[in-house]
């Protein structure tokens, strides 16, 4: 199988590699094959190899996907691998995630609640309460959503789908008391109002989280 990789080292260029295909092989396996056998200078990010860490999101044949969860057999002729859009490329397939994580931190993605550490008690939650936010807690911060979002493409400051999903996830948590603080942050003009429902994020999310839906639900809670 021909693997076309968009490389970047001061300038951007395409490089082609021939990779032997094995049953069950993923695009990430192919990238490792290239690095181990053909070109040790190839740079890419990967960690868990099982779709949990969110490190290996790259554009594969035009669509952002997790390289570790994309089977090579899915494609017939060739595979084009590029760094994801809307992120600054550092080298080859490695992109700068600092701004992305800073936005995530901005929405206070943790439980805000008073705890009595002297007499600790369990925070109980019913399955129904859990189901209000569970799906949105599956986000692995891979950046696929932000890489296709038209607002993220032209507005650096826009919080973006992933951060807004986190805000919604914690706001819907029955154990949390920080709703007002987060709503204040996401209602800024670089917050939820920049989403125009292009739905691209929901279309590419490898965890099928539907970030666009979380943003609209967040927006709805702002009307109250």
């Amino acid at each position: 199988m021909r693997l076309l990789i968009r490389r970047f080292d001061e300038k951007s260029y395409w490089q082609s590699f021939e990779v032997p295909v094995k049953r069950g092989m993923t695009v990430l396996d192919a990238l490792f094959y290239v690095r181990e056998n053909l070109d040790p200078t190839l740079a890419f990010r990967a960690s868990c190899r099982m779709g949990i860490c969110g490190s290996c999101a790259v554009k594969i044949n035009g669509k952002p996907r997790l390289a570790c969860e994309t089977q090579i057999s899915k494609f017939k002729k060739e595979i084009k691998v590029e760094p994801i859009d809307n992120f600054k490329v550092i080298r080859d397939l490695v992109t700068e995630f600092e701004g992305f994580f800073a936005k995530h931190k901005k929405v206070k993605p943790y439980l805000i609640a008073e705890a009595d550490y002297e007499n600790p008690v369990e925070w109980l939650q019913t399955p129904k309460e859990l189901s209000r936010y569970y799906v949105f807690s599956l986000c692995i911060k891979c950046g696929a959503c932000a890489s296709v979002c038209p607002a993220s493409a032209t507005l650096n400051g826009y919080l973006g789908p992933a951060a807004l999903v986190s805000a919604y996830r914690f706001n819907e948590d029955s154990r949390d008391n920080g709703k007002e603080e987060r709503l204040k942050i996401v209602s800024d003009s670089v917050g939820v109002w920049r989403c125009h429902s292009a739905m691209e994020c929901s279309e590419v999310c490898p965890k099928q989280i539907e970030p666009a839906k979380a943003i609209q639900l967040l927006r709805r809670s702002l009307l109250r």
Binding site: N86, A153, M199, E200
Partner: peptide
């Protein structure tokens, strides 16, 4: 790429967004 990136999306929803603009 600037505002041209509003017009590069491939899903039918991205196309609808572009046409809406």
């Amino acid at each position: 790429m600037g505002i041209l990136s509003w017009f590069k999306y491939r899903s039918p929803f991205g196309i609808a967004f572009m046409l809406q603009r």
